[in-house]
Design a protein around this nucleic acid. Structure first.
Length: 229
DNA sequence: AATTACTCCAACCGCTATTAC
DNA sequence: AGTAATAGCGGTTGGAGTAAT
């Protein structure tokens, strides 16, 4: 492996190292990180190089504070998916899983816990918190308890949890989201998708929704839409 | 001014999944 | 099909900066 016998550097990256890594990653592509680590002469592991590139150096990364809008999305997706940081990050252009994970731990976890105590449970829940019974009811599981028991049953409605169905519909994301809806379903009219509980609403709000259920090709082709630059 | 406590975030670690051979 | 290498993910840690005492 890379520089066996030599001591690998750890800790904070120097500006010079960043420049070198950027040059080599640009030149050789975002693959074969061990090769990049060796060829660049950086005394770093390939893993460390990859991490530095993905979380800090790669282009189109958004720096700075998470906006209220992004925060809303994180809360909602975390409610659906739990600690699937990479998956959540893919919904937030320019943000990394590490960034979102840190943000959640330092800002949102406490916040949602407080809100959860006073009103809404789903904010701090794991995705399995709500699951559908045979009928139209949803049961609520308490994952914080040792036995993971059911603590209640409810008719599912988003108002119940004070989460508007698409809290970010009026955001800057609205345009790009609705731009690609026709790609997902050709015979679904744009006006229909604005209706309650239809199309995209379902994708983002149904607690049982799994993005893997969507045609991956249609989603992958949408990457460019996230590029806000 | 010095010390302690706390917050935040970059970086690391261990594990699993995927890919290449 | 089996194995090794590589990539990806999520949890955790360490240290710098800031606030409180």
């Amino acid at each position: 492996m890379a520089y066996q016998g030599d001591k690998l550097r750890k800790g904070s990256w120097l500006e010079e190292e960043d420049e070198r890594l950027t040059a080599f990653a640009t030149l050789l592509g975002e693959r074969k990180w061990d090769s990049i680590a060796i060829l660049s002469g950086l005394m770093r592991s390939g893993k460390s190089c990859r991490m530095r590139w993905l979380n800090y150096l790669r282009p189109n990364l958004k720096r700075g504070h998470i906006s209220a809008e992004e925060e809303q999305i994180v809360i909602q997706l975390h409610g659906q998916w739990g600690n699937k940081w990479a998956r959540i990050a893919r919904r937030l252009p320019g943000r990394t899983d590490n960034e979102i994970k840190n943000y959640w731990r330092t800002h949102l976890r406490k916040k949602t816990r407080e809100e959860g105590n006073s009103q809404s449970k789903v904010y701090s829940s794991k995705p399995e918190l709500l699951y559908q019974n045979g009928d139209s009811k949803y049961s609520i599981r308490d994952h914080n308890s040792a036995d993971d028991h059911i603590i209640g049953t409810t008719d599912f409605s988003l108002e119940h949890y004070e989460l508007p169905c698409m809290t970010y519909l009026n955001s800057s994301y609205e345009t790009t989201l609705y731009d690609w809806i026709p790609k997902l379903s050709n015979d679904q009219s744009q006006s229909e998708t604005h209706g309650e509980g239809s199309g995209l609403d379902w994708c983002f709000c149904d607690p049982a929704w799994n993005s893997e259920d969507c045609d991956p090709g249609s989603l992958d082709s949408l990457d460019s839409l996230w590029d806000m630059n």
